[in-house]
């Protein structure tokens, strides 16, 4: 668990330097991105894969819930809500 978090922080830092790469959580509502990497652990990772969140998938942030979390994403034709605990483990590259 701790390791994953550290891992994400590392990725996040890299995200700032590498143009466009950031966590899905930071994706602004209305914009789209391509999934680059999913770093959740074990069963969580498989669940996310199950939803079609594999590298190369296009994701669009559709809307926030009234309190800001979870956020709904359009993933392969369906709208799926993810909590920030999940969306921070998904690294994406924004597209126009």
């Amino acid at each position: 668990m701790k390791l994953t978090i550290l891992n994400n922080i590392k990725l996040n830092e890299r995200g700032i330097t590498m143009a466009g790469l950031k966590s899905l959580k930071e994706l602004a509502v209305g914009s789209s991105a391509i999934v680059k990497n999913v770093s959740a652990d074990g069963i969580k990772q498989r669940r996310l894969l199950d939803l079609g969140l594999v590298p190369g998938t296009r994701v669009e942030a559709v809307g926030r819930s009234p309190l800001g979390d979870p956020i709904a994403y359009s993933i392969r034709g369906a709208v799926i809500a993810l909590r920030k605990e999940e969306s921070t483990t998904i690294m994406v590259e924004t597209v126009n």
């Binding site: 498989r46 199950d50 079609g52």
Partner: peptide, 11 residues
């Protein structure tokens, strides 16, 4: 189910 990858009891 969304898949048959046996990630959950249902699958």
């Amino acid at each position: 189910t969304y898949s048959l990858l046996a990630n959950s009891v249902e699958e």
